[in-house]
Design a protein around this nucleic acid. Sequence first.
DNA 1: TTTGAATATTCCTTGACTGGAATATTCCGT
DNA 2: ACGGAATATTCCAGTCAAGGAATATTCAAA
Lengths: 112, 112
Amino acid sequence: MFKSGMDIMALSALAEPNRINIVQLLRDGPLTVGEIAERLELSQPKTSKHLKVLRESGIVEARIDANRRFYRLRPEPFLALDNWLHSFRHMMEDRLDNLDDYLHQLQNKKEP
Amino acid sequence: MFKSGMDIMALSALAEPNRINIVQLLRDGPLTVGEIAERLELSQPKTSKHLKVLRESGIVEARIDANRRFYRLRPEPFLALDNWLHSFRHMMEDRLDNLDDYLHQLQNKKEP
DNA sequence: TTTGAATATTCCTTGACTGGAATATTCCGT
DNA sequence: ACGGAATATTCCAGTCAAGGAATATTCAAA
């Protein structure tokens, strides 16, 4: 049986500013809790708690190295999200009316 | 200036079961409030309130026809989400270790 | 085994979100 | 203008998640 609905857990986990920041930070590679806390200027307990939510929703996982934990992103939820988004393809294609401008705006990441 | 962070508003709006259901229902085309409420077995005020959240986060828009409002999805947030997901491509490619199984599992939407 | 570093957890308070019920608004037909 | 249909809004109570502070746990090194 195939599940066409999106996982709420993962979305809820991402729907929080600190956690989105953590996820975007981990895009470039694994980091320890202390490094994450330092770069985002978060307290250590706060960081640990958000990482726990991300971990329990399957978005990150930890590699334990003695005292430290290296957190890194798991690809599965991102692939699942991408897969879910594909189910909206037809809707988007049907509505490609005044959308060219928006597309160009998204593509143009260069400064003027 | 280009914003590389994902919009929290849209994610928060999606991170709720009723609203995800509404969004997935609207995938197939516009519906009125009453139709949405009926198909999802939600009360009318409940439906209206969730639609308000979706509307204010830019996920849906309403076409007014006399007494009725036809709600439909806006493509922009989905494109934005898709665009954001692309920034995780490298991470996903780097971790395509034991991921083949998962990919096949996602692709196989047919029954055995 | 004591110390210190790194991380997790608990307790508590506060703010935000949800749902239900009732009410308000808008519009069409008569 | 009136009544009814479709939708929105308000009010209120209950729930839940986030933050701060303090504390607990785990590990390595001396």
